[in-house]
Design a protein around this nucleic acid. Structure first.
Lengths: 328, 328
DNA sequence: GTGAAAGCGCTAACAG
DNA sequence: CTGTTAGCGCTTTCAC
């Protein structure tokens, strides 16, 4: 900017004015400066700007795992909405490790104005602490225990109840649920909904606890087969787990949906493919993204706002993997 | 930092020394300062540091589309290796739009020290121009036309030849290739390898040009079926396209691999799943990531280095989708 | 060992 | 309309 100023024979303030397009500048001077800017290929420094502004117009998005197809979709939707508000997004893969989350938040404290936390780890308090008093955060995809923060989630419990009832309605009596780890609140909510629906129907819920990204689906199925008590329907806490279970069944020559029904959550592209056609509970991702970003934008703009809690409705999408009716 | 200094009764320089852990500071002073830092929850400003250092220890990664499972894997691998060098990574989804790429590069010019370009758009010159004279960039997953830049790619042509010969060896004579858009060099290289292998075997290559993310696979299959000249084997320029084609075949009641063989590129998790078991050509993602990051790190460290070009070998992974032999 | 001073590239009052 | 003067929060000589 100094270069531009001297090259144009003006002061930096004038250059600054035309760069920001603010304040009155005479047409000639402006033209001259724009000319020099183009000639020199000058670009204002974001760093310097952010330093004086005390804001970066950037937000962080914490996700569990980009390999899980749910998160890229969320990331894209959030990126889109953020752009609508003139905000940039930096995506951080936490692997659900508290240390990672905290690390990101600390290393980014300066570089982002706020964070959207969509990773499901047990890191709520640590992240909040690392963030400091000026909570600029909204949770999504996970339901924080604390009531002092804003969040946008879908009603996992209700979605799970709908799915379970769908299976019960098909005549299933022995239904198994393969959950994620105990600390993942979305998985727990889905499990709770399943258990509630089963109990309401006077059926015994069958549960196998797993984890994400470690082939829990396959393990659960193998265990059930080994024990000789395979359910007639299986629900995975997400599509990945359900697909792992399905693959394990395939390897054991158990037919889906002929011998057993399978369903998951998140309505992943793979579930949607005709090659798989798996029943799944879809979250309103775009809506979640939109609401989450807007909540954060409000926090960035307004000073002290009361936290807002939004719960959206998921949608059950029945496909071939649960198309076979059982006789009681 | 000023706060810390006054609270500790020392100068900012001294605080700076202990924060950076550089220079001699008396044990007492250091203890005192560390105490105050902890008490005040002080964190050094990255913005200010980067401003004076003229470097951010951060690199940008440009990808085509995070929804394509290849890119998250690359992103994670690059993030991992970058971390080993004390570098952060910000991932940018370009959708293969030149405008997006340029936009990212311009908006990040200050905030990153270099970029790894893995998005396959036709944006090479524009990105290079936007980056300015101080090329701190390495291309990967795409082969730039310019020879003045470093890149790390896998030998798509060779991989495609291996795959095509595998199908020919199985007795296939009519093989169709569904490519991505013409501007995607990795897709073009794969197509070229296919054509070369077919020609070498004195067979007529069949080609259908498509695009990414627009169901080209299905369209190509529908066209072939409509025209009554469905090949006996189909290769997709990547797994996504191959799976789309497969899904379309399924909907037309064409059996894979019974009636027709299918194969793709990238060895995506879905291809690996026993539910699909699709033959695919795997790229050495981790190796690519490692080499790409190191090349960039070298550029950041050394001053003027000659560009380096690395070509890695892919691996053909044959699975059930191409398991049926044809009789001539 | 420690402090004072200059400056990274910009914006934000103030004067003219 | 335009220039001057302070900083934003840090690092980096150079003195003491």
């Amino acid at each position: 900017m100094e270069d531009v100023a001297s090259a144009a024979g003006v002061s930096v303030s004038t250059v600054s004015r035309v760069v920001r397009d603010k304040g009155e500048v005479s047409p000639e001077t402006r033209a001259k400066i724009e000319d020099v800017i183009a000639k020199l290929g000058f670009r204002p420094s974001f760093l310097a700007r952010a330093l004086v502004a005390g804001a970066t117009r950037t937000i962080a998005l914490l996700v569990s795992d980009l390999d899980d197809p749910f998160y890229p979709r969320l990331a894209k939707a959030i990126g889109q909405e953020a752009l609508n508000h003139g905000l940039g997004v930096v995506v951080c893969n936490t692997d659900d490790q508290t240390a990672e989350s905290v690390d990101f938040v600390e290393r980014l404290h300066d570089r982002v104005d706020g964070v959207i936390h969509a990773s499901v780890g047990l890191d709520e308090n640590e992240v909040l602490a690392a963030l400091g008093a000026s909570h600029r955060i909204v949770f999504t995809n996970r339901r924080p225990a604390s009531v002092v923060v804003s969040y946008v989630v879908s009603d996992n419990r209700a979605g799970s109840i709908a799915l379970t009832n769908h299976l019960i309605g098909l005549g299933h009596r022995r239904i198994g649920f393969i959950s994620g780890p105990e600390w993942a609140s979305n998985s727990q909510d889905r499990l709770a909904g399943f258990a509630a629906a089963m109990t309401a129907a006077q059926l015994q819920p069958i549960h196998s606890e797993g984890a994400f990204g470690v082939d829990s689906g396959a393990r659960a199925v193998q265990r059930w087969i080994m024990d000789g008590n395979l359910p007639s329907a299986i629900i995975g806490a997400n599509d990945m787990i359900a697909l792992e279970a399905w693959a394990a069944l395939r390897e054991s020559n158990v037919a889906v949906p002929g011998d057993i029904a399978i369903a998951g959550f998140d309505d992943t592209p793979i579930a949607r493919s005709p090659l798989i056609a798996m029943t799944s509970v879809a979250q309103p991702i775009e809506e979640m993204a939109r609401r989450a970003v807007r909540l954060l934008v409000d926090q960035l703009a307004g000073s002290s706002q009361a936290p807002v809690q939004v719960v959206l409705e998921p949608t059950l999408i029945a496909r071939a993997s649960t198309s076979t009716r059982r006789e009681a």
